[in-house]
Design a binder for these strands. Structure first.
Lengths: 215, 215
DNA sequence: CAATCAAGATACAGATCTGTATCTGAATAC
DNA sequence: GTATTCAGATACAGATCTGTATCTTGATTG
């Protein structure tokens, strides 16, 4: 006990404080929304006073921007890891399933915060590109994953892969919202089940080249 | 000119005031969020003082609840009208297309307010059932529309219609969010185009009964 | 070990918000 | 036409929040 009470350097202490403030803010934003949370409350939940807050961030907006960046980046990493690690396509599907199962446990918090940040970004011109990039990359990840899948099955994509990636990504979001709004009625696996169904139908469509009426 | 200056009865005046307050609140919620809007601001935008507000609503939450109800009901009406009026399926698709075109013009406002209200309902136990009902009905409307479509084409639904309806509805939401986050990159018609693609793929899947691996 | 420096606490001034209590004038009732 | 009643305005008392200015204390530097 009392091994060697880590004495923090100034920089370490500062980073710790910033981290705790950000974490506390994320919690509170989830619970009460960005606008419903005061600087006072953030500092208090993090175990500091407002003085510490203003020493580390210009104001609440600055913190929101930083939080948005952090989360955007980490989510992008996850998406990348998810699509790159998997060698085979079924592998990727399995990873996706596991990922969704895991997220299911914190879904309300995760989604509430995501929506909060989306709304905030919508209202702040400067933050929007950040969000847009995140969405775009996620869609591209899905698109390339799908191309891979079609290639593996020896069929042609039934539409522009970018369009298909958009559908998959959007569907994921929409399904999560539905699960949140109508709890109990929707199993954890909807997202993956839906994805599975889409892939099968698109494969079926691709294999029946009659009825190509695009144009 | 000055025909007969309509002198309002008390009840009429009260209803007018309520209506204006609700409309002003909707605007402000869209712009700054529910939590970012004060009773003061609502009253001011509506052209009244706080006194009028508290004479008509218990507090801001009561107003939000009422706004949520209004919008939920009117949206449900729209969905119902959309699916019932159309005799043929292509008819319904056309109506859907027109509807989406129309909404595209006010998409940012519409979606921002919807997300605001969703978040608010998520945090208020009592309001959630209202939202849930709305979503459920929308999904059912899609489901029955799909059943009709499959019947018209003489094929069987490739999965539980309720599941398919959920997918369509969720996809709609998700696509709108994507359009909002990445403006410019997504045409107005995505929702309908995506719907069209899904229907064709599902029809294709249904017509190839091999590979039915459910269960 | 003394001098310095900065992280975080405390104190302060101003703004804004909420909710109630009271007032005023126009619509109703008699 | 007078009395009444109620929609909405005005006034008031807290409460809370923001941002800055100043202090305290422990880390750093020599």
């Amino acid at each position: 006990m009392t091994p060697e009470r880590k004495r923090l350097t100034r920089e370490e202490s500062r980073q710790q404080t910033r981290g705790r403030l950000l974490a506390a803010a994320a919690e509170l934003f989830t619970e009460r929304g960005v606008n419903g949370t005061s600087v006072e409350q953030i500092a208090e939940r993090a175990g500091y006073t407002r003085g510490a807050f203003y020493g580390n961030f210009e104001d609440k907006n600055a913190l929101v921007a930083e939080l948005l960046q952090h989360r955007t980046r980490s989510e992008l990493e996850e998406v990348r890891a998810l699509t790159q690690d998997a060698a085979s396509f079924d592998d990727a599907l399995g990873a996706l399933r596991a990922w969704n199962r895991d997220r299911a446990r914190h879904l309300p918090e995760w989604l509430a915060l995501r929506m909060e940040l989306v709304l905030h970004a919508l209202r702040n011109e400067e933050l929007r590109p950040l969000l847009a990039e995140r969405e775009l990359l996620a869609r591209e990840a899905h698109a390339s994953g799908l191309e891979q899948a079609f290639a593996a099955r020896g069929v042609q994509a039934p539409a522009d892969p970018a369009f298909l990636g958009l559908i998959v990504h959007a569907l994921e979001d929409g399904l999560l919202i539905q699960r949140l709004l109508t709890p109990g009625g929707i199993p954890d696996d909807v997202v993956v089940d839906a994805f599975d169904l889409l892939l099968r139908s698109w494969t079926a469509l691709a294999q029946r080249p009659d009825g190509e009426g695009d144009g």
